[in-house]
Design a protein around this nucleic acid. Sequence first.
DNA 1: TGCTAAATAT
DNA 2: TATATTTAGC
Length: 565
Amino acid sequence: MVCTANDLLAWKDFPKGLKILLLDEDSNSAAEIKSKLEAMDYIVSIFCDEKEALSAITDKPESFHAAIVEVTTINSSETYKFLETAKDMPTIMTSNTHCLNTMIKCIALGAVEFLWKPLSEEKLRNIWQHVVHKAFNAGGTVLSESLKPIKESVVSMLHLQLENGKLRKENSEETENVSLVHKDELEQSGGSDKYPAPSTPQLKQGGRSLDDGDCQDHANCSTEKESGELDGESKSVETTCGNSITEENLQPGKHRRPKEVEIKEEDDSANNSKSESHTYFPPQSEDNLNDFNHGTGSPSKASGLHNSCVNRTNRKKMKVDWTPDLHKKFVQAVEQLGVDQAIPSRILDLMKVEGLTRHNVASHLQKYRMHRRHILPKEDGRRWPQPRDQKQRGYYPHKPIMAFPAYQTSNPFPAAPVYPLWGAPSSHPRPAGVHMWGSLSYPSWQPAESWHWTPYPAGAMNADAWGCPVMPPPHGPCSYPQNSYGFHNSGRVDSGYSMSANSFELYPAQDVIDKVVKEAISMPWLPLPLGLKPPSIECVLAELSKQGISTILPDIKSSINYHST
DNA sequence: TGCTAAATAT
DNA sequence: TATATTTAGC
C-alpha cells in the first residue's frame, strides 16, 4: 500500500504515485488511459467490473486515491451505485456519450468531474487536484484513509514552501489553519480546484478568476484584514461572510461563524481581474467548511442576500452588506446612544459585530444621516424651513412630525418602546406618564422598501427603516420640545402643501387626533401641537352654538383664550 | 477620531 | 443613472 510514512516522505513529486482506480469495460480504452496516466507517474489499477472495483475499494480503501469510471447508457445504474458507494473517493466520470442527464446525475451523486472521451493527457494531468481537494474538504468525518496522508503531505509541502517564501505561519498555529491558508495559496497560484465544484482542471488552469472567488470559502474572507483597517480597528476580524455576528457567535479564534458581517470582496485590481466573489455553498460542502475553520454555517438567512466573501488576495475593499439585520443593529446602537451622541466608534462598540470596522460604521452613519437630512425634509420639511444656523451635529433639519405623543425627552430608554407611527394602529399603547408633547420626530423616512421594511408591522420596531428609531432618541431633534404632534401632513390643517402617497398612509388615526385635541384642551398651558392653529374664540363659540352648545365650561374657555392670545 | 466629499462599485 | 460603499483628505 502506498500511504505509509515512507511513502509520504518520498512524495516529493506529488502527485506522482497517486493511485488511480480505473473502471472501464472497454479494455482498449482502459489500456490507453492507463498508459497515459502511467506516463504521468500515476499508479493505475484497471477494473472491468463495478463489483470488483467496489470490493477492492472496500477491502483496501487506502489503496486508491481517486477513481476514473466510465459510464455508459448501459451500465449507468451500476455506475451510479458505484458513485454512491465510493462517495469518499474522488471519482471522475468518463463517457463517450454526451448525455447531459447522465452527466448531471453523476455529478449529483458525487462525481468530482465528468470528462468526455477521449481522455487527453491534458485532461488527465490534473486529476490529482480532486484528490487534494477531497483531502481538504472531506470535512474530517469522511476523510478516507487514503486521503489523510495526502492531506498531510500537501500540508507539509506547503508549509515548507511558505517558510521559504513569505508567509511564515507561526508554528503554534493549528494545523488546520495552516492547511487552510496554504491551500488557498495553492489554489490561487496553481489554479487548483475550488471547493465546491468539480473543477475541470484542464479548463481552468492558470487563470481562475471568478470561480475561484466563488468557491472561496470563508477562509479567504478571514485572511488578512490587513489591508483594511490600518487604524487597527478590525482587531480580529477580517473579513467575514455571513451576517451580523453577535458576540456569542464569536469564536475565540478568529474565524467567523455563522453570523457575521456579510462582506463582498473584490480582487485586487492590481493582481487580478476584479470581480466580486460570491461564496456558494454546495450542499455537500457545508461541513467541509469546518475543516478549514472558516466555515460559516449556511448562508445567512437574515439577509436575503447571497453570502459573499472574499478572496483575500487583495487588499482592497470588502464591502459590507448592510442587511436589514445589520442595519437594525446599527439603528439600535444609534438610538441607544442618541442621535446626537452617535459616533462611529461608539456605534461600533454597541453593535458588537465582528468584522465591522469603524469606517464601515462611519460610512453607514453618513448615509443614515444623509437620509435623515435630505429625504425627510423632502417629505415633510417643506413646510418647516429650518434656520441654517442649526448646524449642530445630530441636528436634523426636519421638524417634528410625530403624530403621537412621544416619550419624555429625558428618557432615552423607555420601558416600553412603542413607536407609534403615522397610520399606526391607534391601539398602540402610549407610554405611561408621558404628557409632554412628544419631542421626538419620527421621521417617516424612509421608504421602507429600501430595507425590506414593512410599514407598520404590528408591534414591530421598525428599525429596518431608515430613520425609524428603535429607541427613541434622548431628546428631540430640534427646539420644539413640546410640539410634536405635527399634523401638517394631514392636509386638513394645512392644505397648502402637497402630500405624498406616503403622507396619506401616515395620516394619523382619528382617535389620535381626538386625543391630541383633548390634551390640548385639558392642558391649556401647553402650546398647541404644531400644525394646529388656535381657533378664534368667535369661531369656537359659533361652532359650539351650531352644535347646540351654548354653555361653555370655564376651563375650556380659558383654554381657548390661552391659545388665542 | 469624526466628518465630508470624491471615487468607485454594483 | 442611481444608489451603496469605500477611500481620501481635512
